[in-house]
Design a protein around this nucleic acid. Structure first.
Length: 596
RNA sequence: GGUCCGGUAGCUCAGUUGGAUAGAGCAACAGCCUUCUAAGCUGUGGGUCGCGCGUUCGAAUCGCGCCCGGAUCACCA
């Protein structure tokens, strides 16, 4: 039983004994006492005034006195206005630390046979260009969210829906056919996704030139776009693809393989992965049945031109198109189809879509439609919506070359980490391989932490220069603290310090108590982050813990402490801070180095 | 115009189901390396929590109205 629960229970008991009123202990949430006041936990007594019919000070005084007399965890109390500050018996804190130390999966709930299954969709790239900064935010959020849900005891299936068909892919294919001269990724010495991306850009360039020429020959913008030969060829290719034309399909197959090989490399470097990948080429025809079923059930209706719609005005939204007049699917229909396939594959209880906030409306509609169509998780599907990543110079525009490529970005981060470390002389005692590994961990940690610490809903500015600043609320700062703790532990074992010490009667000081209190918060932080789907809460918690520990680390000698009991206690405390840092960072998909 | 989301220090951001005098980092200035890793620590300065009204013992937090910024409102995905 946690200290919080003990105090909540004791408070409820006190109110019952003093005023004869029943209060649910769970409705009382003790908060950590502010630094400027004495005590560890604070109870706000205003809610009890109706029961006590006395003023706040007297009420707090009475409850405090009762708790002091009847609860052995309470050592002392003081009252300021309506705030009852309780000092916990220091020996209890030692017990809390020992409990944390002895609980291997502290803070993580285990998956059980009746755990709910949550499917998390993230990444969802197009196969016509490499991943960029926007995908990085998506991937990091999606992966972290998966880890957080697992820690909350859910069964998690990570999924990726790859947009592998459509006019954009045909553009790349066409450009490769026309100007590629049979080049392949290995011949070009280039990752496949980058190669395809180059052809996509090339298409756009040639297309623009064609349009420009047509306009100069006297056509209007609109007419020029209509009569562009390139675009017509691309459309024809898409048509052939849809009829299953062998030639087009085999080029498509080959080029997609190149792209997937490139993506795999990027994903694996980024440290993200998937349990199940869906391809739009397999799912894009699937939604039709469901929609037709919807017509029979009166959920959808058909217009005179043959198109099919859903009327969502009763839910405050508009009419939504689901099938075109010619019977083909739109985006929404495909998502319904994908949902159908997924539900055939897995007994989904909960579905989370990690998709940018420009699609908020889409998911509002999807949720309603899936619900109406009988998907049990439709109504409560979570659109984990995140804001755009902007650059200091403004928005990213692929045409203007201001897109930050994911691979380049990771390279840059790792290189900078290595240079910075070398400048500080940190890597002088390492082998080359070790130095590279540490640089990789630090560089990627800096990137990941910088992105994940921000509330996902907010648009954020990614400043490449500032992200490589290793000071303050950053990944490297946290990693550094972890590395120092590992150093302390190494020295502990080198010096053969006996850790089998009886901690009976130990009196942790204020700073130690503050750290233990924070460690004890870990489970509720994970739970909260799982409810609000927020990796940022984990990130900021870990930072607070590290900050608190750093002060302690600088104020007290740990290994030099002469009192064996105190020394062992401080080593134990450090070890557990290290453990929690590691677990917290693992929820963000960030590694921690044992030295740096 | 309709809908959704943001607005907290010069900058980047926290702020736990409404709680005490709103917190970090960066930037600026002043200190601290014979002591477990100085990528660190300590101190100083910096605020109309977008604006107003309301709800109550108490509002950055909840409600209503307005202002600013973003997204979206396609037979694109």
């Amino acid at each position: 039983m946690s200290i919080d629960n003990i105090i909540s229970q004791a408070t409820a008991d006190a109110v019952k004994a003093l005023y004869g009123v029943d209060i649910l202990p769970s409705s009382i949430a003790p908060q950590t006492t502010k630094k400027e006041f004495e005590g560890n936990l604070t109870i706000v007594v205003f809610p009890f005034l109706k029961a006590s019919r006395k003023n706040p000070e007297i009420t707090a005084q009475e409850i405090g006195q009762y708790m002091l007399d009847n609860c052995n965890a309470v050592k002392d109390f003081n009252v300021i206005k309506g705030f009852l500050n309780i000092t916990i018996e220091p020996a209890f804190w030692a017990g809390v630390l020992i409990h944390i130390n002895e609980t291997p999966d502290y803070g993580f709930k285990a998956e059980t046979s009746d755990s709910e299954l949550v499917m998390i969709e993230y990444s969802s790239p197009n196969t016509n260009k490499p991943l960029h900064l926007g995908h990085v935010r998506n991937n990091l959020l999606g992966f972290s969210l998966s880890e957080i849900m697992k820690a909350n005891g859910y069964k998690v299936v990570k999924t990726n829906i790859v947009n592998d068909r459509g006019i954009h892919i045909c553009k790349s294919m066409l450009a490769w056919q026309k100007w590629g001269d049979g080049i392949t990724p290995s011949k070009a010495g280039k990752k496949g996704d980058h190669l395809i991306g180059d052809f996509y850009v090339l298409f756009d360039k040639k297309y623009k030139a064609e349009i420009k020429a047509l306009i100069e020959s006297g056509l209007s913008q609109e007419d020029a776009e209509k009569s562009s030969k390139l675009m017509l060829e691309a459309r024809e290719m898409l048509r052939l693809w849809e009829t299953g034309d062998q030639n087009v399909r085999s080029i498509w197959q080959m080029m997609n393989e190149w792209v997937y090989a490139g993506f795999d490399e990027t994903y694996s470097r980024m440290g993200v992965n998937f349990d199940k990948i869906y391809y739009e080429s397999n799912t894009y025809l699937e939604g039709k049945d469901k929609v037709l079923e919807g017509i029979e059930n009166g959920i959808m209706y058909r217009k005179d031109d043959g198109s099919v719609w859903a009327d969502l005005t009763a839910d405050g939204l508009d009419h939504k198109l689901l099938l075109r007049g010619d019977g083909t699917s739109v985006y929404m229909t495909q998502d319904i189809g994908t949902a159908k396939l997924r539900y055939q594959d897995y007994p989904i209880d909960k579905m989370i879509y990690v998709v940018g906030n420009e699609q908020n409306y889409h998911f509002q509609v999807l949720s309603l439609l899936l619900d109406k169509l009988g998907f049990k998780w439709g109504k409560d599907l979570v659109h984990f919506s995140y804001g755009m990543v902007e650059l200091p110079e403004g928005k990213m525009k692929s045409r203007e070359g201001t897109v930050v490529d994911a691979d380049d970005l990771m390279d840059e981060m790792i290189t900078t980490a290595k240079e910075t470390s070398a400048e500080m002389g940190k890597l002088s005692n390492c082998s080359e391989a070790e130095a590279n590994d540490i640089s990789r961990i630090i560089g990627l940690g800096a990137l990941k932490y910088f992105i994940l610490k921000v509330d996902p809903r907010k648009n954020m500015t990614f400043n490449p220069k500032e992200s490589i600043d290793f000071n303050g609320n950053t990944g490297p700062f946290i990693q550094y603290t972890y590395a120092r703790i590992q150093s302390v532990l190494r020295k502990t074992s080198e010096a053969n310090i006996d850790m089998n010490v009886d901690f009976n009667g130990i009196q942790p000081n204020e700073k130690e108590i503050a750290i233990i209190q924070r460690l004890a918060d870990f489970p509720s932080i994970i739970e909260e982050a799982g409810k609000s789907y927020s990796p940022a809460q984990i990130a900021n918690y870990v930072y607070d813990l590290v900050k608190e520990y750093n002060q302690f680390y600088h104020d007290y000698s740990i290994l030099k402490e002469s009192d064996e009991q105190v020394r062992a206690f401080r080593i134990l405390l450090s070890k557990n801070v290290g453990n929690i840092i590691k677990r917290g960072m693992s929820l963000l998909g960030i590694e921690v180095p044992s030295r740096m």
